[in-house]
Design a protein around this nucleic acid. Structure first.
Lengths: 351, 351
DNA sequence: TTGAAAGCGCTAACAC
DNA sequence: GTGTTAGCGCTTTCAA
């Protein structure tokens, strides 16, 4: 069990001062070539690695960024994180990840621990509970202190800060328009409760598409799902409103998959009699039968964008960019669930 | 932009020394009640939070653990991480995550940055490339230095260290036995190249089950998939060996899903004519039709177990436990792809 | 009861 | 060209 070596032990062993060692390792021109080489050789031999805590403390720079997500076991967030990680890495930054589990108090804790010296900046998608309780004080503190922070996806509208979002209204519009283009005329939507902004916005886009296409709007076909109660039961309601939709837009892929299952069970043919489109291009959509069309949300791109904004803010604290919002484009991924006529399903494998 | 306060500013503002402040905040009985309360109130008012870097440096304890995984966008690893996070949290530890992307050099970097003061211990699933090149030197260093480290899932057999694994041989046996119990007699396997231990072990279990059941072993039905080439083409081979399997064991869920698709495309009925079972209980298995039976790998449990081992090692460096291996049990999750006779698929919704 | 000072590991201004 | 020293923010021994 060889103990960890530090600059002091190196200096002692070599019979020089710590500053000589430090300077040598940084290849300072103050130091003679001979000394430097002696130091290098010995440092190498001893497998010396500088202590990053000491470095960070000294330089007031941790070279790491923190990210807080509501959950990890979720394709979208994993993708975002991968994107962040890529940019971080390219810039020699490290990543620290915290999970809020959609809880407000956990989020506060995480924010606090990050903001107290552990990281140079934070990327965060806000917990559901924070929206429910409309409590963003922990973020406001940071923003007021000018602490580098970038919000993505689920962002607090009340806070002026760097944000990376998709245009949810447009995404909802796109999805609905796609259903209409594929021949649907009686459209329903499976959406979230009112406090989830992204759901609300997608719904706005949905309504806009109906209006511009001069199609009827059926209130009874707009179902808000409350995840505190069994989802399936609630989704089922869209099929028992007297009028049967021939097109359903679900604001996430889970609802889309459930609607699909229920429809199939009821003997409704998808896509011939009913077209379904989801949101977010996750794994589920690719493996249902028929496969689900969806609005791709480009999580990886959101991650890289968020990281880039954060790093540029960290490095030059450019106030001009302070209120910048990066809008990531969505686009339709058409699969079988919205085909005009059902083809024989093409077998398209992953990879 | 209120600047961050530290103990020094508090002391100055209060007209006391830093040590008085420090002791007050720790509720030391050396300090008078009045002073303490004055300090508390002011610290509160100024929203003082101790700098964690300074604390870590001082205490030689970071209260964070690092985890290195090959990839994040992967249900199993996300589950493991969630498990680790839960235990870490319960013990007031934080989590730092690094992605090796299955690359050896990245893994070395990550290990190094973690081991140099950033974390108190490391949990890691080793990169594929490290196995290919058979290079575990970066880990050996740590183990020799007695740095707390726990391997999980993909572990280097040559290193004596704490490990959390599943019994892959038994898992493979279980899966194969299940196929046999469900009536399969001509069995094939989709496995990995020889350097991936988990694939090899699952294959061992497969062979063992065939032997104990006195069923024939067909070499041509044992396909090793090399992911550097198109997977689908390689999976397809299992259907063109002259003899058609009526049971396939795939060592991961992706291969299982692909085999299922190919079979269906070829008009082979699943599960009537062919039974398929995968490994790892991910999202894919739940959404194919028919749904895929699988060997559940219990990622979350692996995570909690790994974290518990690591923490107990960190806290008491108990040498007696040094070589302990924690074996997480697997079990069969039966779904439609291995039913004896095909029922009408029950509609089982998520949630 | 309070304060001064050393030190965690490192860097950098300044002295020699 | 090399060494001394102060200091990053904190804790803790020791002295007052």
């Amino acid at each position: 069990m060889s103990k960890k070596v530090n600059i002091k032990t190196l200096a002692a062993d070599l019979g020089v001062s710590v500053s000589t060692v430090s300077k040598s390792l940084k290849n300072s021109l103050e130091i003679s070539k001979e000394t430097k080489e002696r130091v290098w050789a010995y440092a190498q031999k001893m497998n010396y690695k500088p202590n990053s805590l000491a470095l960070s403390l000294r330089n007031k720079k941790t070279m790491t960024i923190g990210i807080i997500v509501p959950e990890l076991v979720h394709h979208f967030f994993s993708r975002v994180i991968s994107g962040v990680e890529q940019v971080a890495n390219h810039n020699a930054y490290h990543l620290m990840i915290a999970l809020s589990n959609d809880r407000l108090d956990k989020e506060k804790q995480d924010v606090e621990m990050f903001a107290n010296g552990r990281v140079d900046g934070i990327i965060v998608s806000v917990a559901k509970e924070s929206f429910e309780k409309n409590d963003f004080s922990h973020f406001e503190d940071l923003v007021n202190r000018n602490f580098p922070i970038v919000f993505f996806d689920r962002v607090p509208t009340s806070i002026r800060a760097l944000k990376v979002i998709i245009d949810d209204i447009f995404g909802g519009y796109q999805a609905t328009k796609h259903l209409i283009d594929q021949g649907a005329k009686t459209l329903g939507i499976l959406t979230t409760p009112p406090h989830i902004t992204v759901g609300v916005d997608r719904q706005k886009g949905f309504l806009k598409a109906l209006r511009t296409s001069q199609l009827p709007i059926y209130n009874q076909l707009q179902i808000s799902i409350n995840e505190k109660y069994p989802i399936v039961k609630q989704v089922e309601k869209i099929f028992s409103q007297g009028i049967l939709p021939d097109g359903i837009f679900a604001v996430n892929e889970n609802y889309a998959a459930i609607a699909l299952e229920i429809a199939l069970e009821k003997g409704i043919k998808v896509p011939e009699e009913l077209k379904i489109i989801g949101f977010t291009d996750g794994l589920i959509s690719k493996t249902t039968r028929p496969r689900l069309s969806t609005v791709a949300q480009h999580g990886f791109a959101m991650g890289t964008s968020a990281a880039e904004m954060l790093l540029s803010y960290i490095e030059n604290k450019n106030m001009l960019e302070f209120d910048r919002i990066s809008l990531i484009e969505t686009n339709i991924v058409q699969r079988e669930s919205t085909e005009k006529k059902r083809n024989n399903y093409p077998v398209v494998y992953k990879k």
